[in-house]
Write a protein that binds this DNA or RNA. Structure first.
Lengths: 362, 362
DNA sequence: CTGAAAGCGCTTACAG
DNA sequence: CTGAAAGCGCTTACAG
């Protein structure tokens, strides 16, 4: 009891207090007491452990087990985006449930840092590895990431389709976005498509086009960027041009905000004169927007959860995994995108004459 | 050389390959070779280490040194916000520079999770601890956070002023925001103040008011929330009421976006008819907005960096810190908020008659 | 049913 | 200048 309070108790301290050996302490605290240790001694051990607030030294446990109960997460920039946090949240909750902790390295898109990140993490002897992308993209799994259970979140490697990868079902999301407008009665839809070099925009466009086509309608597409300003510019062009559409599907919520902004500046009301569908369900933008944005959510949290679950599963399945996982072909899994209905979609107003600019509807 | 490639090399492997003892390997690789080990043997050891890609097992090192080279970060929700990422980025870069890694636990504002978070992290024997708040607030340092170097980022404990705390200088930020408008020639300024219960809004308001007062002007204040929709509502009221101001200081960029939205709906141009200053320099909003928002940036990255540097410093200073830090009174440090000039502020238009709604200025 | 011993991989006195 | 030994805290065969 003269142990200074600042020093953490060891199993020896517990053994001394309970009057048993360290082995007994270990057995009991690891649930292998029954049949090995007398019940009263078990109770004494537990009591001593509780009194001393004993927690096994993880370095010692790791040294013995060659497991660190730690998962490495390398991300391209995910800690710097609002919805990236959701992915991390799903991941860390899944990890925590099984007693694992996440160690995060953010590379901010710098190639050099990425190589270092894997090296650092492997050096730390993480039990598994994850690469999480800020937004959907292709990703070439580097050599440094192999030899340990590994999964991809929000990205996939076309050259290594057997690597477990968890991505949003963007095509279905695009279909859902179009369906929202179709169900409200829109026929005349333009897609503010985002940047063409992003795979998400291509996939979403495929979905929107397919759904519209199935209903017998053509789709007009305008390539944009991903920012509010891109939405303003593109929407201004579309809304002042010929054949003004009654509905807009936007590449993401930021573009949708830009579209609303542009509409307002032109004296057009959303959703009265124009319906707008966003994408992402960005917490800072979609719900708080006026009008609140109807949008397609990205299942980032589930993606994070599923990716960690997979790594943990591989770890449990393959006892030798910590030293070099063998993976069999499993491939990419598509996680559905929930539809979030709010206030930016309404039936198209009967097209009479062009709405007069300058009569804001509220 | 028959070592399977999946097994990581140990110092024994290196010693065998170099033909020396493990001690020699340790000495050389830890920079204490000179004067102890013959130069040619040193070279042999380094070569062997490189060839085997030897990396010391961190569990073994930790067990011996009782240092994990790991810092625990508990956050209230920081991983779920865009600018929270900046804080984490600053923190992890500072940590990395000295060979430390960050382990992050996000509590999502759940009290219970917070207690668990500290417990988990302490159980992992982190060398130091940080609490990082998503936005400026007071924070009662819990018992579980003591006994190890500790710092607060983006928050402070009024009951424990000696705890190192790093926060933005919001008063100076508020002054700077007002100064921007004053310098452009505005006299008639309204503050869309955010929620009154937040300490940031109070501090910013003090700054704005002080700067205006020093110039001989009064300040009108409207309490709002923090979201786009709050900005829309408040700005609509202010802009349609008597004594329409020529300049608006907004509690944050989201409110500023709402203010611009409201102005546009009323047919008012920003910055032609109304100047708007934001706060936060939110990456998704400020620069991409149309017009790009002039705003006051939050120095989140520096805050994260400084907090980690402080913990690391305490760790280095106090050799017994890992087991129970003794801290002397240091208190809170204010980090300045940079001014970011973009396009949402202009000189006030000579007040003639009210600008006609419905003539968008571009 | 229980305790003594070995060993995970490292570093640091301590002998030679 | 170098190697053998001890020990960090744990768990798991292995004797008793």
């Amino acid at each position: 009891m003269t142990r200074p309070p600042s020093r953490k108790a060891t199993s020896q301290d517990v053994a001394d207090l309970a009057g048993v050996s360290r082995s007994a302490v270990s057995l009991v605290l690891n649930g292998r007491g029954d049949g090995n240790i007398a019940p009263d001694k078990q109770a004494a051990i537990r009591a001593a452990a509780a009194q001393l607030e004993y927690e096994p030294n993880p370095s010692a446990v790791s040294l013995r087990s060659s497991r660190t109960r730690t998962l490495g997460v390398v991300t391209d920039a995910i800690a710097s985006t609002a919805y990236g946090g959701d992915l991390l949240r799903g991941a860390s909750e899944a990890a925590e449930r099984s007693g694992h902790l996440l160690v995060l390295v953010d590379t901010h898109y710098e190639e050099q840092r990425e190589a270092d990140a894997y090296r650092t993490l492997r050096g730390r002897r993480v039990d598994g590895l994850l690469f999480a992308a800020m937004s959907l993209r292709e990703y070439a799994v580097p050599e440094a990431a192999t030899g340990v259970p590994f999964a991809l979140a929000n990205c996939y490697d076309p050259a290594a389709p057997q690597v477990p990868a968890f991505v949003a079902d963007e095509v279905a999301g695009g279909r859902a976005a179009a369906r929202l407008l179709l169900d409200a009665g829109h026929r005349d839809v333009v897609l503010l498509a985002g940047a063409r070099d992003a795979v998400a925009s291509t996939l979403r466009e495929d979905g929107v086009r397919a759904e519209l086509a199935a209903a017998g309608h053509a789709l007009r597409t305008v390539e944009t960027g991903w920012e509010i300003s891109d939405g303003v510019a593109a929407a201004t062009t579309v809304l002042t041009g010929p054949d003004r559409p009654t509905g807009l599907v936007c590449a993401n919520d930021r573009v949708a905000v830009g579209a609303v902004l542009a509409a307002n500046r032109l004296g057009l009301d959303v959703p009265g004169d124009l319906s707008v569908v966003g994408y992402d369900d960005d917490a800072a933008l979609a719900a708080p927007m006026v009008p609140a944005l109807t949008t397609i959510a990205l299942p980032h949290r589930q993606i994070g959860e599923a990716a960690v679950a997979r790594v943990l599963d591989d770890l449990a399945t393959d006892p030798s995994a910590a030293g070099g996982a063998r993976r069999t072909g499993h491939g990419t899994v598509l996680v559905p995108c929930p539809v979030v209905v709010r206030d930016s979609v309404a039936p198209p107003r009967r097209r009479a004459s062009r709405q007069r600019a300058g009569s804001p509807s509220r």
